[in-house]
């Protein structure tokens, strides 16, 4: 995929923090060196095509009261991966659901992030999913510590 220098400046600016004021995209456009109308037009196009996954606020979940989350991994038989992945995704408490390769060291095939007010609530949600989908072998991996969390920055100078 090829982007013009101007578009790359816009991609970078979109990953920065927008000011909270009447016309936030005027600042964005200034950073990217284009008019507000042009920045919005390109951003709308990227939003429609899926290059922009989401526009808006990123919150600190713990501060906002979404306190506990666990990575729950599921040992789902191969022929049920698709069906179980879809069923898990339908749940509000599941924010992420991916399939990943199984190995002899690690039998799990589906990965979900399950959120709740408390760790017990996460356990309860996982138990319900396990019962309803009849997936008995699963594990909840709570995070003990955040070792690194940075915003994924794409198209920065250092990786070009």
């Amino acid at each position: 995929m090829e982007f013009s220098e101007k578009e790359i400046r816009l991609l970078r600016a979109l990953q920065e923090d927008l000011p909270v004021r009447e016309r936030p995209y005027a600042d964005l456009a200034a950073r990217a060196g284009m008019s507000e109308a042009e920045a919005l037009e390109i951003a709308r196009r990227w939003n429609a095509s899926g290059i922009i996954r989401r526009m808006g606020a990123f919150i600190r979940h713990r501060k906002a009261g979404v306190k506990a989350n666990g990575m729950v991994v599921w040992d789902v038989p191969e022929e049920r991966v698709e069906e179980a992945g879809r069923a898990m995704s339908e749940r509000d408490c599941v924010s992420h659901c991916y399939a990943r390769p199984r190995s002899d060291k690690w039998p799990f095939r589906l990965y979900t992030m399950i959120h709740g007010a408390t760790e017990d609530e996460v356990r309860e949600q996982a138990r319900m999913v396990s019962e309803e989908l009849r997936v008995e072998n699963f594990r909840i991996l709570f995070s003990l510590r955040e070792l690194k969390k940075s915003d994924t920055k794409l198209f920065m100078e250092e990786d070009r």
Binding site: M1, L11, L14, Q15, E16, D17, L18, P19, V20, P24, A43, S49, G50, I51, I52, R53, R54, M55, G56, A57, F58, I59, R60, K63, A64, Y98, R100, Y111, D151, T152, L154, F155
Partner: peptide, 21 residues
């Protein structure tokens, strides 16, 4: 501090990036 950032989340795959866990 409730809001960490206002802006876009880009789709790395759509931009040709590769990722793993």
């Amino acid at each position: 501090g409730l809001i960490r950032r206002m802006g876009a989340s880009l789709n790395p795959r759509a931009l040709g990036y590769v990722s793993t866990l």
